[in-house]
């Protein structure tokens, strides 16, 4: 995959991962839930973030690279 085509996946992948990590951090600080639940929550948040970000980021990345 060329660097131009990598832009989109890098952005939405990175941001989703960041959202998941932020959830994990917040859960560690403010929630009594166990690690399994925290990790599951982080995965779910990252997944939903991915779905929200992909349709926004992909057209933006396409416009940028064209």
């Amino acid at each position: 995959m060329s660097p131009r085509r990598m832009l989109g996946p890098l952005v939405y992948g990175g941001l989703s991962l960041l959202a998941g990590l932020l959830f994990l951090l917040a859960a560690s600080l403010w929630s009594d839930a166990g690690w399994g639940q925290r990790l599951g929550g982080a995965a779910w948040v990252a997944f939903l973030s991915l779905i929200v970000l992909m349709p926004v980021v992909i057209p933006w990345a396409r416009r940028r690279s064209s």
Partner: peptide, 13 residues
Amino acid sequence: HLLALATFAFWFF
């Protein structure tokens, strides 16, 4: 999907 995200965070925390 955003609402689902917010719902999850609200009920979890």
